[in-house]
Design a protein around this nucleic acid. Structure first.
Length: 374
DNA sequence: AATTTAGGCAACCGCTCCTCT
DNA sequence: AAGAGGAGCGGTTGCCTAAAT
């Protein structure tokens, strides 16, 4: 729109911040709040543009920022949310308390993306690359279709969740936030364009829908259209998927007892190495195999069981993290990894699965309102 | 020990969206 | 309704450090 960037002003400093600058910014915001970022540098006595100040504050100086290694749970959340939301780092960050979008973005680009690539999965589309599955006849196509459907369904759920959210907004008042004198940091739309700032981000609705499915379906099953009780039914004729109330005929890959491998600080016990991704392709095939049958119309009829996007994403995330777990275990002298994916599968129960999603939901539920926005 | 290479992260840049006038 | 300005997001860059040679 023809507006000149604020940083074009000559004489403004760029580059790394000095401790003195940090102190000035910190002191000013603590006393006055940031107010208008554009006006802040002059008031705070900084030779920086407002944009730079905002970035420094949100990514580094904010007191509620958690630094250090990402826990396995955080990784899992990122992977799943990225599968759902794509590169919407701010939306993802909403669900990771004390993590900044920039940090998550960097972590994705430097760690998680590489893991996906090593697994033969396109980190952008989350589609399994064909070569990763080429050893199994017909699977690559199925996997690609499956992934595509998962993505499509994700997008659809997103759209529907937005409708749900908007309908909620019409009936519910969220006036409490406006009483906060502190400037709002996350007052923008985090999910879709054109929507008003959500009281709760999209993922909450989506995952709540999933949660509803978990809570009401029978063991291992998933019902996408199940209402959470306080929201509209998400069942939609537009869905590419149909879900039954019958048990899922498969067990997801991997134990997913990620918590077992946390240290007390919530950090990873060990960083991944080259070795631990060996055999990942086989595990990926396990996932594909597992979900393939329910996705074919014939087998749906035959087995009377379906798999939803959640299971795909879950297996997907588990796959990433489980391999690290396996490696961790072997590093500690365990001999669990014998190359047989079935062993891992058997370790994942319905309760664990449910608990896993509950954990994600707890995280989701707590982050938008609980996380200190300022 | 010196140099090169790779990885990680902080910060910048350009764009889009939202709000206000 | 349209334009200007502010804020935030996502992609990218560049610097610093650790690892490898």
């Amino acid at each position: 729109m023809g507006r000149s960037p604020c940083c074009e002003k000559v004489g403004l400093k760029k580059g790394p911040w000095t401790p003195e600058e940090d102190q000035k910014l910190l002191a000013y915001i603590e006393e006055h709040g940031h107010g208008s970022w554009r006006a802040l540098p002059a008031k705070a006595g900084l030779q920086r543009c407002g944009k730079s100040c905002r970035l420094r504050w949100t990514n580094y100086l904010r007191p509620d920022i958690k630094r250090g290694k990402f826990s396995l749970q955080e990784e899992q959340t990122i992977i799943q949310l990225h599968a759902l939301l794509g590169n919407r780092w701010s939306a993802i960050a909403t669900h990771l308390p004390k993590r900044t979008d920039n940090e998550i973005k960097n972590y994705w680009n430097t760690h998680l993306k590489k893991r996906l690539a090593k697994m033969g999965i396109d980190p952008v589309t989350h589609k399994p690359k064909s070569d990763a599955l080429s050893s199994v006849d017909g699977q690559s196509k199925t996997a690609a279709n499956l992934s595509h459907m998962a993505q499509w369904e994700s997008a659809r759920l997103e759209a529907e969740a937005r409708l749900v959210r908007e309908s909620k907004l019409k009936s519910t008042s969220f006036g409490s936030e406006s009483s906060d004198p502190a400037p709002q940091l996350n007052n923008k739309t985090v999910v879709t364009t054109g929507a008003p700032p959500p009281a709760q981000p999209l993922c909450l609705d989506v995952l709540k829908a999933w949660q509803g499915g978990w809570s009401k379906s029978t063991k291992g099953g998933f019902i996408a259209g199940t209402s959470t009780g306080n929201g509209p039914d998400l069942e939609s004729p537009t869905s590419t998927l149909s879900f039954s109330e019958n048990p899922l005929p498969i067990q997801p890959v991997g134990p997913t007892n990620a918590v077992e491998y946390y240290d007390n600080e919530g950090g990873m016990v060990k960083e991944e190495g080259e070795e631990e991704w060996k055999g990942v392709t086989a595990s990926l095939q396990d996932v594909v195999f597992a979900v393939e049958t329910p996705w074919s119309p014939e087998s749906r009829k035959a087995e009377n069981g379906h798999v939803g996007v959640s299971n795909f994403m879950e297996g997907f995330a588990d796959l990433l993290l489980t391999n690290a777990d396996d490696h961790n275990e072997s590093e500690r002298g365990g001999d669990s990894d014998n190359g047989d994916g079935n062993d891992r599968s058997e370790g994942f129960s319905y309760e664990e699965n449910k608990n896993y999603w509950n954990n994600i939901l707890n995280l989701v539920n707590s982050s938008p309102s609980d996380s200190p926005v300022f």
